[in-house]
Amino acid sequence: MVVASGKGGTGKTSMVSSFAALTNAVFADCDVDAPNLHLILKPEITEKMPYEGMEVARIDEGKCIKCGECERACRFNAIENFKVIEEKCEGCGVCPLVCPVDAITLHKRVNGIVYVADTRFGDFVYGILSPGEEASGKLVTMVRKKAQEIAEKKGKDLIVIDAPAGIGCPVISSIGGTDLAVIVAEPTMAAIHDMERILKVAEHFNVPTVVCINKYDINEEQSRKIEEYCREKGIEILGKIPFNKKFTEAMVEGKNIIEYDEELGKIIREIWNRVEKKLGERQKEKT
């Protein structure tokens, strides 16, 4: 299952970190360009793998005759004045192809790291993309593969994925092929707009969805709009969580809300029970 939202900052990671206390699954943080789950799970790293995503082109200045063929052929505007702008280079391989004097070669680069770890709640896999690197979707796939391997090895039948914000490349890689997407919504006009888009993405990739409304009491009128929207679309709402400063306090202490506050913890626990029920139904549908 995956926890996603479209808009950032709606509470995905707070939710996932709480679920960690409630189930014996493998947890995977796929928000590789801004990972946060490890700040709560406090992993003890057991394995570390470099991630080589995309190669980068390099021009041999000694060989270069400054003909400009590479610059004209590059669709990513990654070559200027016979130099490669590394942040823009996709490693597609077109420039070595067009260079008449073989002055350009592709080189491997480390774009990030995948960590496997133990936590007080069990197994955890996360990836960190180097700032400004390309191809975060591929790193997400690597994190998910590793999580799958661990789940198989340890006989666990559930992986819980914390997805990034947005609806693009790393989000698609996080959602694709999952059995359930829990969408964390917030009762603001901006978050509702984004929720509608992430629901469409899930639909596009045939992933069933359920919705939780976080901070529902910030604007109850907007909360009702979310409920209406979901009713119309036949999407189940698994729970509503009130706004409470204790969520931030728990985060500052490096704890999830289950550990920090019994009353608020109870609300998340109830949501989790409904998620589990939903996952059970999905399991039956599949077999």
């Binding site: 801004a34 700032p131 400004g132 690197e133 914000a165 947005g166 790393p170």
Partner: peptide
Amino acid sequence: APPGNGCPVIETMH
């Protein structure tokens, strides 16, 4: 800018 620190953010900041 979009959230994150990946390619669309760089394209924006550049």
